[in-house]
Amino acid sequence: MKNPSVDTHLLPADRAGDEPLLAVDNLHVEFQTRQGVVRAVNGVSYSVNAGETLAVLGESGSGKSVTAQAIMGILDMPPARIPKGEVRFHGTDLLTMRDEDRGQIRGRRIAMIFQDALSALNPVFTVGWQIGEMFRVHQGMSKRDARRKAVELMDRVRIPGAKSRVDDFPHQFSGGMRQRIMIAMAIALDPEILIADEPTTALDVTVQAQIMGLLAELQQESDMGLILITHDLGVVADVADKIAVMYGGRIVEHASVFDGYRAPAHPYTKGLLESIPRVDLKGQELYAIKGMPPNLLDMPTGCAFHPRCPYRKENCVTDVPPLYTVSDTRGSACHYWREVLDDGSR
């Protein structure tokens, strides 16, 4: 087997106390393709609590979106298959739930926003109609009331002149405004969990910061659990409470934002951090992780990161590292996490 199945578990802190609001536990997702079985998600575990922000980090193709789609239950099956794992919401596994029951949760209690708001909004309906649809379909609200609620929400995500713009179409808004409309739609029914899949990737830097600020603010107001998916560590440092780093469909590190940024326990996280441009290190060459992200159909043996790893030793090529427990709230899938940790961040 080129890419063996790997098991992980939740951190000790998540297993000891109360059940987290949302717990992804040893989730596996594979795609049946012509070239073979792609293990897009290979033993992912993470948790979020109310009012907490988890940042899921990793290069493109590492399985962040597929994990999120599995949580939402919006994967196309087939070609996708979930051979193993649980997604527990208030302690109940969503994956084995009846379709009708899961339908009660999707969009209402767990909501999601996507990267490219232009293509994620339906081009032929007004934004007011699309936001109001949440109320009309889920709460049987009248057209007029739903439209009024849509205006309120557009105000809440601070779209200027909401009242006069509610009947406009998505293409008539700027990128940042469109993402605000997506957010308005997602928070319409006060969800307990909001998953934001690269919500700012398509936007320019100032708008990125505004959207992040808005998300953080909305979260504080309503005590949502927020899963922030991104490949850009720079944007999450201010808003996230903890991070989960993914590589090749696997979780390689769990940490609080503070610990993770100060002293990463996995060489990959360390590499990611050192790739962020920093003011205090101006002029120095930017460290970028050398090499290419792994091919899921032809994964390196042992530790999947070994071809790119500066800490590599002999056994890394043969032994798959389990998710080692670093502390109650920390885990690292590196045989030599102590060494990495001791080096600290640059």
Partner: peptide
């Protein structure tokens, strides 16, 4: 296959809709 269909599904709309 369009993104806005994925959005509609994520909104929790019934398949019919």
């Amino acid at each position: 296959r369009a993104d806005y269909i994925r959005t509609a599904v994520a909104k929790g709309l019934p398949r019919r809709r």
